[in-house]
Amino acid sequence: MLVFAISDKGGTGRSVTSSNIVYRRALQGSDVCYLDFDFGSPTAGAIFSVSSAARGTIQGGMHGYFEGRIADPHRIDIWAETDREGLRAKPPGAGQMVLFPGDEGGGEFSTVSEEMLRRCVRLFTRLEEEFDLCLVDLSAGRSFAAQMALAATARLPGVPFRWLVFHRWTRQHIIAAHGLVRGRQGLLAAGVEHGHDEETLADHIRFVRTAVLEPDAAELEGLRETQKAWLNECDRELRELARRYGVGRTSMLGKIPLDPVLQWREQLISDEDVLSSQIANAETVAAFDDLAKKIVDDSAWEAL
């Protein structure tokens, strides 16, 4: 299955959340891979703590592949190549976890040529043979990468795909997320142009809220009653706004709580980070785990 991760605005935690979903899915026993399609800023290696690819690879990555310079993009076995000691041993029963990084110094493409599209179709088809889950991390906003993803999936009717739209729980982000999906030249409009059926495509898109601060969260214990009441009111307004914009509960796949570890150091959160060093919150890991299950759970994707 292909899963595309996209957000309208930057700073949603799209990449770090996607990486953690991939990691959780691998722990649950699936073969997974992560494709860095954020062509303007190929830094996925940093999240997986693969220092040789922290700014992209020099061995021919996504850029080289799409430009036709290399036959196969460089692949990194994260279990073997990550610098983080705690991740280096693949637990028994866990699946493959492979990173396809961009090229160091690679930039955003200026167009999607027919050649690139064919390469993309070929790449997706081959990875689908090998991996249960291929997570494609697109950049923020409308991009050639997103256009290519829509065009390629339209040519691959037999390959299941899903889209995750990441947004923060703010007024601006909710409106932006709605616009990215349903606005002018949004995913649906562009998808239809490439041959997708609008309704079917819409059924394959879900939202993920990130950096969510629940009004009843433990962190807010010390707030004054007036502050709490104001927060509750804000949250109610946001929920109302989200509902109106089609970004409400029914179209939401999951939410990730605000966690300092994710804010300050974008990284995979291992069970050890929660249990031994206790730098991360158990709720965060639970949220990742939940998302990793729901992403492949058909009942969470029934037509709205």
Partner: peptide, 29 residues
Amino acid sequence: DLGSVSERFMDAVQASPLLDRKAPFRSAR
């Protein structure tokens, strides 16, 4: 690169509309 040539012919077969693409398990070539 003979391997890439071989793979392209495999790709051509895998892309056949006669196949349902629902393989019973994932496996690497």
